[in-house]
């Protein structure tokens, strides 16, 4: 029976309970919190949850509190190695700073896409795929 336990969702996640985890959602959001509960659909309950945004090697956090994540939105759940976390070359800055940089970058990307679409369109190609809509 022991050999069967790892081959279920509950069997594989039980050792992550009460650990600090990172949850990546389908919309690209990253949540960090204490993993408290879960079920077979990969619904997760996170306590002391924060949302983290990154731009290159800068990041910012926002407090959320207790969060129940519906499984269909989950991409991955990772256990954060507390020792590795201290060695990571990331720098915390204010939320508005990171947000501004991300917005700028998105604008630039959108502009590039518009130009690319025009060029491809003029040659008879349709390019309506955008990054992040793969699901």
């Amino acid at each position: 029976m022991d050999a069967l336990i790892p081959f279920t969702t509950s069997g594989s996640l039980v050792d992550l309970v009460d650990k600090k985890v990172l949850v990546v959602l389908r919309d690209g959001r990253k949540l960090i919190g204490v993993f408290r509960s879960y079920d077979q659909f990969a619904n997760f309950l996170l306590e002391q949850c924060i949302e983290r945004i990154h731009f290159k090697f800068e990041y910012a956090d926002k407090d959320i509190g207790v969060l129940l994540v519906r499984g269909e939105n989950v991409v991955a759940l990772g256990e954060i190695d507390l020792i590795a976390e201290d060695m990571v070359p990331l720098q915390q800055v204010s939320w508005s700073q990171v947000e501004e940089k991300i917005n700028e970058d998105n604008k630039r990307r959108e502009r590039d896409h518009t130009i690319k679409d025009k060029v491809l369109g003029s040659m008879g190609f349709v390019n309506d795929g955008r990054e992040g809509d793969a699901y």
Binding site: S12, L13, L16, L22, V24, R26, K30, A42, R52, H54, K56, F57, Y59, G71, E72, V74, V75, A76, L77, G78, E79, I80, D81, A84, E85, V88, P89, L90, A134, Y135
Partner: peptide, 21 residues
């Protein structure tokens, strides 16, 4: 890792089957 800096401190992970390509 430069595009995914959030994964630097993660050593083991659970991936939902529905998002695997």
């Amino acid at each position: 890792p430069e595009r995914h800096p959030h994964m630097l401190a993660v050593k083991n992970c659970f991936i939902r089957g529905s998002v695997v390509r």
